[in-house]
Design a protein around this nucleic acid. Structure first.
Lengths: 236, 236
DNA sequence: TGTATTCATGATGTATACAAATCAGTCAAC
DNA sequence: GTTGACTGATTTGTATACATCATGAATACA
């Protein structure tokens, strides 16, 4: 649903999404129209249309006479996230294995190469964005517009959470990252073979890894919490 | 994510949604800005913002320099619909049973009364819209913004499809409608008791009923087609 | 000193005017 | 008869000006 707009508007749309996903624009922070107009060289009319669009897609929230803010992330959203992610990710990957076109598989492999490069580079932003791109391509492969709506919203917050814990340079992080990379490779293989069961299984394994990373980051070290009941997190 | 706008804009937003859901605006039909401006008494600037918002929510699709159209419904969307609906509906109702507030249950009961009245009246539009409202309330009860995104999109098309087959006055329709009404009552009971298993089960039963109705309408009578592989449907 | 009100400032919401692109119809050429 | 390009009219995209609302500092008062 990206607007295939003329350049200036497209740039604003894409760059705002990038800035939100990478936490360059912090959750809950205000988006002033005049600032954005100056930055992207647009007048307020088209810029406001971009904000409306982003609002409909869940990147920003609008309040009457109070402008736009980057969508918030509270402990509530995190709880919702833990519930919805395994359901949607496994469904998407199952469908991706059933429906992926040859062209899409080429794109996914290219995305995976970029992801691998980002892992090697250590660039946090690049890691988060290339991972985001990988999973969005699987969403397109699934080709189900209804489920894609949920996936898109999950990925907004998954990528933002990813930026948060990627920033932490824990000792265990690198092992987990290389495992994530390996899982991506296995996903590609399963999709290429049309093995939908395996693809769905991999989605759950991949999610379990993410979940552990998130929990590690969110929880004070050494504090145990029951699975499926994520600890409360103060909003930023 | 509805805009809490000043009256004129809100009216346009709500009425366009209503008109799209009830097929008063046909899938794929053009939405001319000047016509809508005259109708709702707005200038083009705020009206275009409404269209952008509706685009982000899946009601309309925008094309550069070619204006807005009501979102299309092809046999592809119908196929996607059959795949996503049971997954999302059961997940939503399970969560609704776990999380519904007392206030929300009151609202759901009120919606069900309106639905029952619409069934008695025979007003096709009222039936479709009150049914839509019932299920959107269950979505709010679930309180999961990620899954809600999918539910909202499913309901757009479910309501539109409902308008299509409600219009047909088949002999069997009334029995099925009263069963649907009864299932709503059972859903309320399950939610009120916090019986999430039963609620999810009811969601699937309710979906099976809808699915049969849709297949009855879509298929030429007497023509069998395998379940899960809906027949091709020409777009309007 | 603390609280409430006022008013100036700045931001958002809307309308209008203008620029650019699409579409329909005609006409000419093949 | 069909195809192609041209032109006028309509529609969409953008910029600017104005109206309305929120915010916060300054002042008056208890």
């Amino acid at each position: 649903m990206p607007p295939q707009r003329g350049t200036a508007k497209t740039v604003a749309y894409e760059d705002l999404k990038r800035a939100i996903l990478t936490l360059e624009r912090k959750p809950g922070s205000a988006l002033e129209e005049t600032e954005l107009c100056d930055r992207y060289g647009l007048s307020r009319t088209p810029l406001r249309e971009v904000l409306q669009q982003l609002s409909g897609e869940g990147y920003v929230s609008l309040q009457l006479n109070r402008g736009a803010r980057v969508s918030d992330m509270s402990h509530y959203t995190l709880r919702d996230f833990f519930l919805a992610a395994p359901l949607i990710y496994s469904a998407i990957l199952r469908l991706a294995a059933q429906n992926a076109s040859a062209q899409q598989i080429v794109e996914l492999k290219a995305a995976q190469e970029d992801f691998r490069a980002a892992m090697a580079s250590g660039d946090v932003t690049a890691r988060a964005l290339t991972n985001d791109r990988f999973h969005r391509i699987t969403g397109l492969m699934a080709g189900n517009s209804y489920l894609l709506a949920s996936l898109d919203r999950l990925l907004i917050d998954h990528t933002r959470i990813g930026m948060t814990f990627f920033r932490k340079k824990a000792g265990t992080t690198d092992d987990r990252l290389s495992l994530a990379c390996q899982q991506h490779d296995e996903m590609i293989a399963a999709i290429e073979q049309g093995d939908d069961e395996r693809a769905a299984e991999l989605a759950l394994e991949h999610w379990a890894l993410s979940r552990d990373q998130i929990e590690l980051f969110v929880m004070p070290a050494g504090l145990e919490a029951p699975l499926g009941q994520p600890p409360k997190l103060k909003s930023a």
